[in-house]
Design a protein around this nucleic acid. Structure first.
Lengths: 148, 148
DNA sequence: TATTGTTATACTCTATAACTATA
DNA sequence: TATAGTTATAGAGTATAACAATA
C-alpha cells in the first residue's frame, strides 16, 4: 500500500476534476434556465427522492442548518416546495416538493444536454462498466479498518 | 437514437450526481482545511497548470470576469498568487502561483482522503478503464452535427 | 439538557452595468 | 471601436453564534 499516490492517480484526479467541472457547469446552466441557482437546483434534486426534515436536508447537502432556512424560503416563495409540520415531533418541519417542483426538477435534468449526450453516446456495456467503477470508487464506504 | 433517455441513463445520472457530489465535498473540505473556499481552491488548481491572464482565468472557471478581481485580491493578500503586468499588452495582467501557493494546491490535493482512498483501492486495469470512460463522456466535444 | 428551526451577522460568490486604460 | 481589468451594486450562498419552542 503505497503512501505516495502514483502518477496514475494523478491523472485520474485531474480527469475527475475536469469531469466534475463539466457536469457541474451543465447542471448550473440547466438550473439557471429554470431561473434557479445551483444550490436551489441541488436542493430540489435531493427532495425528488422524498420529503425531508430541514436538518436532514442540511446534512445531505453538507451545509449548515441555518442556510436551509433561506434556501427553502426562496423555493417556497416560488411554490416549488412546501413546509409541513411533523405530526410526531412538533419541532420538526418536513419539506416536500410541490407538483410544480417535481416538474422543475425533471426540466433541469432534461436540460443537461452535454452530459446526457455524453452518456447516450456510450454503448450499453461501457455504461454498465462506468456504473460499476463509480460505485466502487465513491459509494464504497472506504472501509478497510481505520486502525482502532 | 432514442429521444427519451432510457432508464439506464437515469441510473447513471443519479450515480454521477452522487459521485461528483462526493468528490466536490471532499475537495471543499480539503480546501477549508487550508482556510480557503472552494472557488479559491479551484482557482489555485487552475493556476497550477501555469500562469493565466485574468480574463482567461474567468473563462476557464466559467464565471464573469468581474468575479476574478475579488477572488485574486484575496488570494494575493495571502501571498498565494501574484499579479504581473504583461510585457506585450499593457491592459493584461498575468496571474501566477507563488511558492506558497504551489504548496497549498498540493496540500489540498493530498487532503482529499476519501477520493484518494477510493482511487487507490482500484486495480490498475480498472483505473485505466475509468480514465477512458470519463474521457469519452466528458471531454469528447459532443460533436455529432447540431442540425444546421 | 439536548435538539429543531430560526434569526442576526459577517464574509464570500455571483452577475449586471458602468468606468479606465489601453489596443 | 473593441478589449482587459476594475469598481459599484444587489442578490444569493455560507458559517458562527445566539435564541425560542419542544423533546
Amino acid at each position: 500500500m503505497p503512501e505516495t499516490p502514483g502518477p496514475g492517480t494523478d491523472r485520474l484526479m485531474e480527469l475527475l476534476s475536469v469531469s466534475l467541472g463539466a457536469y457541474y457547469g451543465d447542471f448550473t446552466a440547466a438550473a439557471a434556465a429554470e431561473g434557479l441557482t445551483a444550490s436551489q437546483g441541488k436542493t430540489l434534486s435531493v427532495l425528488r427522492r422524498g420529503p425531508s426534515a430541514m436538518r436532514a436536508l442540511a446534512t445531505t447537502l453538507a451545509c449548515d442548518a441555518s442556510n436551509m432556512t433561506g434556501i427553502i424560503d426562496r423555493l417556497e416563495k416560488r411554490a416549488l416546495v412546501r413546509r409541513e409540520p411533523s405530526p410526531t415531533d412538533r419541532r420538526v418541519k418536513t419539506v416536500l416538493l410541490t407538483a410544480e417542483g417535481e416538474r422543475t426538477v425533471d426540466a433541469i435534468r432534461a436540460g443537461m444536454h452535454t452530459t446526457l449526450a455524453g452518456l447516450e453516446a456510450l454503448p450499453d456495456a461501457d455504461r454498465g462498466a462506468l456504473e460499476d467503477l463509480l460505485e466502487r470508487v465513491f459509494t464504497a464506504p472506504a472501509r478497510g479498518g481505520p486502525t482502532p
